[in-house]
Structure formats: structure tokens, C-alpha cells
């Protein structure tokens, strides 16, 4: 049995909007195992980003629990959130969000844990991602696809349990977008992480293992 790295148990979240209570997430359950890449799709306003923020330990659910690597994160204090994100979660953003003043190599080292060397061989990963030659270059000197690939490497630098990708193909054309998702998939398999892609890009859905549909706060797995 493959290890379960992420589990959401009955997550609910409501917002008060103009005096009206709106349910964003309604009893959402999902789980991701190691080496598995899932996609969460849904129309805008369906609660995708709220779900992502809760999974990314940046927002507190009203009800339900988030289990990361078997540990209940909902019990942790807010003060520890940053540390949890650093150790357990790798983020890939919609726009690469690299710091403009750092070379590709520094992008990784700045966010890497200071004390111990990453368990993942970053040299090899940059090789795998085809950006080994870009180490000394700044984001402005990289192509859109290369930037997103550096961002992928950055997500893995602290050897996290899960990889969260927020619309990773949004700023790329079809070929490059597909390439990026393929790379995320490869690395997740290789390093036995749990991967979640939030996307509305239907063209890459054949690359994921399972698909969850989110609509009006209700999450259903596609059969």
C-alpha cells in the first residue's frame, strides 16, 4: 500500500459577503498518495483557491482536518505555519514568482534549509529539468518555460511531502505548458511526492492520475 501523504477530511469554509453567508467549501474530502499527481479542476469561483490556501497551510478551515504526512495540521498553532510550509510543502505558482535579482542557482539556495543539505540532489534535478545550463542566469535572461522549470526545482528544494501547483501552465503556450506538467509528473514519481495541480487547462488532464471536480464548494472525484 502506498503511503498517504495528504488527506483532507470534511473541510468546510464559509465567508460572509455583504452580510450574506456564502459557503465556499462544503465538506470536501480528498486524499493523495506518494507518487501520485492529482488535478483539481472547476470553474472560477468554485472555491479552488480557497481549497489550495487551506491545503497550503495559509488559511484555516472552519471544519475538518488537514493531514500532511499523517500529521494533523489543524492542531498546529499559526506560528508554526511558516515552518510547516517550509518543510512539508513545495509551491509552484501561476506566474513563476522567482525573485528577479537572484540567479537560478540562488533561487534554490535562498529557500533551501540552511543546516542540512537537501535530500534531493538538486544538480541532478536541474539536469532532469533541462536547466543545468541556466544556473548563473537571472530570471530576465530565461524563457518562460525555463523560469517555470526553475520554479519547479525550487518547490522540491526542501524535500517536502507534497507539491502544490497553482495553475502552473497559465503563462505558457500549449507545448510548453504540457512540458511543464510532464516534468512535474516525472519529478513527483521519481521522488515519491504527492502532487496537486489546480488548473482549468483541460489539455493537460491526461497527464494526471486522478481528477477532482470542484463546483459550488462540492468536490467530486471523476470516476
Amino acid at each position: 500500500m502506498r503511503q498517504q501523504l495528504l488527506a483532507l477530511h470534511h473541510i468546510s469554509k464559509t465567508f460572509v459577503d455583504g452580510g450574506e453567508k456564502r459557503t465556499i467549501l462544503d465538506d470536501v474530502c480528498l486524499e493523495v498518495h506518494e507518487g501520485e499527481l492529482i488535478a483539481i479542476v472547476g470553474p472560477s469561483g468554485s472555491g479552488k483557491s480557497t481549497l489550495l490556501n487551506i491545503t497550503g497551510i495559509m488559511l484555516e478551515p472552519e471544519q475538518g482536518q488537514v493531514f500532511l504526512n499523517g500529521k494533523n495540521m489543524t492542531e498546529k498553532k499559526k506560528k508554526e505555519w511558516t515552518k510547516i510550509r517550509k518543510n512539508e510543502i513545495g509551491f509552484i505558482f501561476q506566474h513563476h514568482q522567482l525573485l528577479p535579482y537572484l540567479t537560478a542557482e540562488d533561487q534554490l539556495s535562498v529557500f533551501g534549509k540552511r543546516a542540512k543539505k537537501s535530500a534531493i540532489d538538486m544538480e541532478q534535478m536541474m539536469e532532469d529539468l533541462g536547466i543545468a545550463g541556466c544556473k548563473k542566469r537571472y530570471p530576465a535572461q530565461l524563457s518562460g518555460g525555463e523560469r517555470q522549470r526553475v520554479a519547479i526545482a525550487r518547490a522540491f528544494v526542501n524535500d517536502p511531502s507534497i507539491i502544490l501547483a497553482d495553475e502552473p501552465t497559465a503563462s505558457l503556450d500549449e507545448t510548453r505548458g504540457r512540458q511543464v506538467v510532464e516534468m512535474i509528473r516525472e519529478q513527483i514519481k521519481k521522488h515519491k511526492k504527492a502532487g496537486i495541480i489546480v488548473t482549468h487547462d483541460k489539455r493537460v488532464l491526461d497527464l494526471v492520475d486522478r481528477i477532482y471536480y470542484l463546483e459550488n464548494g462540492v468536490c467530486k472525484e471523476q470516476a
Binding site: T82, K86, F111
Partner: peptide, 12 residues
């Protein structure tokens, strides 16, 4: 936004 990214990536 950069600060936000840094925070998200686990910088205190």
C-alpha cells in the same frame, strides 16, 4: 507580492 511569495515558501 515578493514578500508574500517568500512567506509562502517558508521564510519567516
Amino acid at each position: 507580492r515578493q514578500f508574500g511569495v517568500m512567506r509562502a515558501l517558508g521564510m519567516e
